[in-house]
Amino acid sequence: MMELLADRASLFALTGAALVALGFYGFIIQRAPIRRLIAFNVIGSGIFLLFGGASYVGGGVDPVPQALIITGIVVALALTAFAATLAVRLAESGGDDADDDGDDDEDRESDR
């Protein structure tokens, strides 16, 4: 298993690099927020794969990159969820600049 991993480490890293390139192309080309968000996730996955592959130095699995990759995935998940919500709210408000929350106007006019 370890030998297999050592052989494949560069393969994983190169696959990661290819994913980064693909995702980067998508991020630049696409204009719709959701598509760019997907591209962001493709790049993110590529970086995590690259992280795992490139930091493999042989002699067992290094726990540090693994812990960092998991943290990175959590961060990416949070960002994705937030960005998706923002994209949906932006689309619902017709892409307009919105000060349209009812309570905001009340806040502004409330003279205490």
């Binding site: 991020f27 927020p33 760019r36 962001f40 992280f51 490139a54 960002l79 994209a87 892409g95």
Partner: peptide, 29 residues
Amino acid sequence: GSRRAAMRYLMIALAGSLAYLLGVVLIFA
């Protein structure tokens, strides 16, 4: 304030965080 401006900010922030993370990976490797 403005969702459209926030979306633009978010896209820049996402691109920036990916570039930062890739740099961190290269340095760690």
